[in-house]
Computed example of a mutant assay.
Amino acid sequence: MQLQTQVAIPRPLFAIEPFQKVLLVGSCFAQNMGKRFSEAQFQTTVNPFGVMYNPGSILHTVQRCTDCPAVAIFTLGTNRVYCWKETGEIADNCKKMPQKLFDEKELTIDQCVSFLNQAIEILKTRNPQVQVVITVSPIRYAKYGFVGSQLSKATLILATHRLLGLHPDCTSYFPAYEIMNDELRDYRFYAPDMLHPTEQAVEYIWEQFSNAYFSPLTHAFLKEWQPLLAALKHKPFDAESTEYKAFIAKTLQDIRVLGEKYGHKIDLSPYGDMGKHHNHDLL
């Protein structure tokens, strides 16, 4: 008996290696994935100019951001855009300004392809070996109505697959939208608003991405890193106890050894005083 419809993920032509530079631009789902990339010790830049929902705004971020990533991940949320009435330019963030200042429009498939193609060409001028992963956010937009949301997602998916034909050597499609809607089509995988995926659902999609895109060396590193990451997140009953201080010292020593093994300084700055002690005293 098969109780789940699984989405096949084609094996990409490249693999993501440990500590590589990764740029994530797109919707809120890009934020969720970016957090996991950062915790996995990739050199991660996530939406440096804020969350970007449409292909035009994703292009704007790539134009403004000077990063030269090995891998870029574009997470497309919608083909709906808000344009300044005075200039006709797409507003990446309306900044809670009056709606009367904007016109709401829908990008066509051709326009989506054009914006994303320009973004890829810019990245290729900075790094000819860049790989671009495109995915469609699984988050639905109730404010458009569910038929409108589906039409928007369909436009993005059609544009994406046309784009893959233009750049077969450096683009791939990761089916986050399809995984959420086909493999995880139970309401237990949705937050109380019935629109956003739960943490468990995001974690499942992350695992599917990791299995498809990470190299054997990356998997080997993460297998060693995960217990140390769990130790860093441990909340002690008594942070001043002798036992906890010994625990910290042992964890930091293990992290130092792991960094030396892979020839890379492990960034612990997000972990407060422990990170400062590691970076300043042990490496």
Rank of each mutant, 00 (worst) to 15 (best):
Y173T: 06
F209Y: 00
P98W: 11
T198D: 05
E106N: 01
L123S: 02
G145M: 09
N117T: 02
Y141Q: 14
D169L: 08
N93R: 14
R126S: 03
P128E: 15
Y190E: 04
M194A: 00
P138T: 03
H196C: 03
K96E: 14
V130P: 02
L101R: 08
D193Q: 02
W206V: 00
Q150W: 10
L123K: 05
Q129S: 15
Q226A: 15
F214L: 11
H234F: 14
A201Y: 06
P236E: 13
H167D: 10
K143F: 13
T108V: 12
V202M: 05
I109W: 02
S152R: 08
D182A: 02
K153W: 03
V133T: 09
H161D: 11
V132M: 09
Q200F: 00
N93G: 01
Q200A: 01
P236H: 07
D110W: 03
V132F: 06
N127H: 10
M97G: 01
K124R: 13
Q131L: 08
Y190M: 04
I90Y: 03
P138V: 07
L166T: 05
S114N: 04
V113E: 12
S215G: 06
A220C: 13
Q226S: 15
C112V: 01
N93C: 14
V133M: 07
H196G: 01
I157A: 02
L156H: 01
C112W: 06
K105Q: 13
F102N: 03
F115R: 01
P168F: 04
P128A: 13
C94V: 13
A91W: 08
Y144G: 00
D92V: 06
L228K: 14
E104D: 10
L166G: 00
K96Q: 15
A231Y: 13
L222V: 11
L164I: 11
S215A: 13
Y213V: 02
Q131C: 07
N117H: 04
Q131A: 04
Q226C: 15
P128T: 12
A159P: 08
P192A: 00
E224A: 12
T171P: 05
Q208H: 00
P197Q: 11
Q99M: 13
M194K: 12
L195A: 00
Y173N: 10
Q208A: 03
H161Q: 12
N211G: 00
N211W: 00
S172D: 15
K124E: 09
H161A: 07
I90K: 08
L107F: 02
E203T: 12
L229Y: 14
K233M: 14
A230W: 15
V130T: 12
I157H: 09
F221D: 13
P216G: 03
L232A: 10
E183N: 02
K235N: 04
I205L: 05
H234I: 10
A176D: 14
L166H: 04
I139P: 07
L222G: 05
R188Q: 06
P128W: 14
F146P: 06
D193E: 10
H234L: 15
L217Y: 12
F214E: 08
L123F: 02
Y173G: 04
E104L: 12
M97V: 07
L163D: 07
I109D: 12
S149W: 04
F102R: 04
P197N: 03
K235D: 09
V133F: 05
E203M: 09
V132P: 06
E183R: 04
H234W: 11
V130W: 04
F214C: 01
E203G: 01
